[in-house]
C-alpha cells in the first residue's frame, strides 16, 4: 500500500500545496509551527476537507482527483485518523469506542467486541475496556483512540499531534508503543507534530512545512 498525494487547499491565511508520497510501511513526519496546514493535509487525505487542486491515491484506489472532480465520501476511504483531541465518543466505553468502526461496517456485536479487546490488549489498556470514555486519562484515551483507528485496519494511518496531550515523561513509552504495535511494514503513516525531536525519533523521513509549502 502506498499513499500518493498532491494536496492543494486554499485558505484565507495560507495555501496548502504539498506533494507527498509515502511508501508502504514508511513513516513520514510533517513538522511545522501551528497553522501551517499540517492538520489540513491529514483532513484532506481523510476526506474531511475537499481539495481545490491535486489528487489523493491510496494503493490502487483514487480517493480524490480535483481535475476529474472525484471526491470519495469520507466513510469509504479506509483512512485511520487519530485526532489531536482523540474525540472518543463520550457515551461509550473504551471497548465500545474501539468496536465502533467495525459495528458501523456491519460486523456483529460479539466479533467486534472480541476484536476491540484484542486491540486494547495490544495497546496495553485492556484493563480499561469497560471504563466510560470520559473517565480515561489523557494517555489512556490516546491509546484507545489509536486502537479505535487501527481496529478498522485502515490503508493509511494519519496521526495528528499524538504527543500534544501527554506530559514529557510519557513520551518514551508512547514512542516505543508506536514502534512496536502501531507501525508495520505495510501501512503508510503520516505523523504530524510541531516537535522536531519527536519527528526525528520516530519517522523514516521528516518533511518540514512552512505556511503550506515544504520548507527549504
Amino acid at each position: 500500500m502506498r499513499l500518493d498525494s498532491h494536496v492543494v487547499v486554499r485558505r484565507a491565511a495560507f495555501t496548502l500545496d504539498l506533494e507527498l508520497t509515502v511508501e508502504a510501511g514508511e513513516v513520514v513526519a510533517l513538522v511545522g509551527e501551528n497553522g501551517v496546514g499540517k492538520t489540513t493535509y491529514l483532513h484532506a487525505v481523510a476526506g474531511l476537507v475537499e481539495l481545490d487542486d491535486g489528487y489523493v491515491r491510496l494503493g490502487d484506489r483514487v480517493l480524490d482527483d480535483a481535475t476529474g472532480r472525484k471526491h470519495m465520501s469520507v466513510e469509504e476511504r479506509r483512512c485511520g485518523l487519530v485526532f489531536q483531541q482523540h474525540l472518543l465518543f463520550s457515551h461509550l466505553s473504551a471497548a465500545e469506542n474501539v468496536a465502533f468502526g467495525l459495528r458501523a461496517r456491519g460486523v456483529g456485536r460479539r466479533d467486534a467486541r472480541a476484536w476491540a479487546r484484542e486491540w486494547l490488549e495490544r495497546l496495553g489498556v485492556a484493563q480499561h475496556a469497560d471504563t466510560p470514555a470520559t473517565r480515561l486519562s489523557g494517555g489512556q484515551s490516546q491509546r484507545v483512540a489509536l486502537a479505535r483507528a487501527l481496529a478498522t485496519e485502515p490503508d493509511v494511518l494519519l496521526l495528528d499531534e499524538p504527543f500534544a496531550a501527554l506530559d514529557v515523561t510519557a513520551r518514551p513509552a508512547v514512542h516505543a508503543l508506536l514502534r512496536e504495535h502501531v507501525f508495520d511494514d505495510v501501512r503508510p503513516v503520516v505523523l504530524v507534530t510541531h516537535d522536531p525531536a519527536d519527528a526525528s525519533a520516530l519517522a523514516d523521513r521528516v518533511v518540514p512545512l512552512a505556511l503550506g509549502r515544504p520548507a527549504a
Partner: peptide, 27 residues
C-alpha cells in the same frame, strides 16, 4: 461536529452517524 467527522472516518454512513453519534450527543 468533529465527533461526527471522527465517526465518518471510521467508516460510518451518515445514517449510522446520526443514530449512534448525533442522537446520543443531543439526547
Amino acid at each position: 461536529l468533529r465527533y461526527e467527522q471522527a465517526a465518518a472516518v471510521l467508516g460510518a454512513s451518515p445514517w449510522y452517524v446520526f443514530r449512534r453519534v448525533t442522537l446520543p450527543l443531543v439526547g
